[in-house]
Amino acid sequence: MIKLDNVSKSFTLHNQGSAVIPVMTGASLQVDPGECVGLIGASGAGKSTLMRLIYGNYLAASGQILINGVDVARAQPREILALRRDTLGYVSQFLRVVPRVPTLDVVADPLLVVGTPLEEARDKAATLLSKLNIPQRLWGLSPTTFSGGEQQRVNIARGFAHEYPALLLDEPTASLDARNRETVLELISGAKDRGAAIIGIFHDEAARAAVCDRFVDVSDFSPKAAA
């Protein structure tokens, strides 16, 4: 489902003396349907960078990033948009939404763009929000004013609304209490059971052990290690 082959990435800072900062080289990994792979490595090793490369948010310098047959490193913007709409979900650490849009609609949005009828999409969004313990009185409000933990749970609900065949999870359990963490882990297990290929970053060891089938150490891809 997800296959990376010899991916490298460097940043060129044109306005700071054209400094070239290599951040990743020779990254290769494969994730099959129903499998959850955990990315490990110290802070700054490039875990989030690797995820952003897979999502097409960063432009890979070389190599191949195949998701369901589409090479994200070479694809046209509209191919990547179609991939993100139908196939590839991403739960980032930050929630980015249009101001004024109610939480329920923020969560239902990924369903609406794949053509789910409004009622059905809202029902599913409501189910997820209740599961994640967002009080119903907040559903009609924009999540921009929510606390950090609430925003994160809204973000997770949004990420799990549509059943993406491939999922990228950037610290989905950080800053959640035990009960909510359990719910998130259940959602992840559920996604695995329906055959989703998942790449996750978990700092919480217990969470990591609970859902990950194997681990990839991102420090192996750091340019220094290769030199």
């Binding site: 800072l13 306005n15 097409g56 948010n57 960063y58 432009l59 990547i80 948009l81």
Partner: peptide, 21 residues
């Protein structure tokens, strides 16, 4: 040119980098 979030988060051209920063 490119995907909006890619151009804004990983700008390649010197001018875009200046604009975003």
């Amino acid at each position: 040119t490119g995907l909006t979030d890619q151009v804004l988060d990983d700008p390649q051209h010197a001018y875009t980098q200046l604009l975003v920063s």
